[in-house]
Design a protein around this nucleic acid. Structure first.
Lengths: 202, 202
DNA sequence: TTCTTGTTCAAACGATCGTTTGAATTTAAA
DNA sequence: TTTAAATTCAAACGATCGTTTGAACAAGAA
């Protein structure tokens, strides 16, 4: 998909219509504008992804104290994102989301990001349950790191493939999950109870 | 800086010249093209950043086995990136890099990424020294995670500020380093010796 | 001082852009 | 079957784009 490859602004309606063999005016008739086309393209898949996340979340196993396992929470968050690459057009959707992910939240993006707000909060809640000794603020930091890893993985820029000469391939869903999940889980554990942590402020 | 805010293609030369109060034709005269202007803007700072990284790397303390401390290596990588926000225009540069970071490696980007190739390899070498029991392939995975976190942090999209209602601020350099460095270090340790790790392939 | 080189500038070029227009065609409803 | 609504289409609109042009000005060299 062209938006994913080149970014919204670099791709013209004529590029799109030529590739899709549809008429320029028809696209405008049906979607109203280029911007609305993007919202449709992105929004429909995002809703599906959120549903799958919430499904995995509600199916989490709990220990006798009612706590989910940290690794399971992280996987519930990541797996729907990564597995999207297995659907038709899914890899492109992921890359488009990665582009949007590094943009500043603004009017054009607010609608899109809101799709994830509620489910993100639920993931953070589950993380907090799995890490009862961690203050909420630390959970947010860990989540920031998790978002960064997810976003970069979805972008699939080719960077780490290049650096590792192919030894490391983020498009391999299972291999990627097998690395990121423990990485992030252990990362979260490093954040625990840092009440005495120095916080110099400039 | 407009490129950072809106992306290369969404920003016109007229936007730039209006903001900078320079003449449109003069910019073309001096830089040759819009694309070359971008390369100049990005490249000069990137070289400075690489130099600082290499300086920190060569100054790493070593234990009696000659090994650097993992946390120190990670900080040597991250600090120059994050501290750039303290320089004039630095925050914009970071955000522009984050945009470029999620783009596919291609002609327009190859020149830029090569600036980091050699220093990235040196960081990975230092990581491998700090983690002598880890196979190189696992180090690359960890580095992928580190790149993702760096890129997202530089993007400063406002996402985690929004989710955490301000409790988590990636523009606070010291607070961010104090979280990311231990997070990543512990994440790397979770990857150790996974020779028996299942690697199902689709 | 004159000549050469470098720089700035307003205007223009040729191209592309998202969107609109109105006719023609297709589909749905009565 | 006729009418109404929906859809498609080629052409065009008004705007913007990166780049170029050539004159004017400034700076450097002889």
């Amino acid at each position: 998909m062209l938006f994913a490859e080149h970014g919204f602004d670099a791709v013209s309606m004529r590029d799109i219509t030529a590739l899709a063999k549809v008429n320029l005016a028809s696209v405008n008739y049906h979607f109203g504008s280029k911007r609305a086309l993007l919202a449709e393209v992105v929004g429909s898949r995002a809703h599906l992804l959120v549903e799958e996340r919430l499904r995995l979340l509600s199916a989490l196993r709990r220990d006798k104290n009612g706590r989910p396992k940290l690794e399971d929470v992280i996987e519930a968050f990541l797996r729907p994102s990564l597995e999207m690459s297995r659907q038709p057009g899914g890899a492109d959707h992921m890359r488009l989301r990665a582009r949007l992910g590094v943009e500043r939240v603004g009017e054009s993006k607010a609608q899109f990001e809101q799709i994830f707000d509620a489910s993100n909060e639920k993931i953070i809640d589950a993380l907090a349950e799995a890490l009862p000794d961690h203050p909420r603020a630390e959970i947010y930091w860990g989540f920031h790191c998790l978002l960064g890893i997810q976003n970069y993985t979805m972008a699939n820029s080719g960077r780490i493939q290049h650096l590792s000469r192919g030894a490391c391939d983020p498009t391999d869903v299972e291999a990627t999950l097998a690395r990121i999940v423990p990485f992030v889980a252990n990362g979260f554990r490093a954040l625990k109870r840092k009440r005495a942590a120095p916080r110099p402020r400039r």
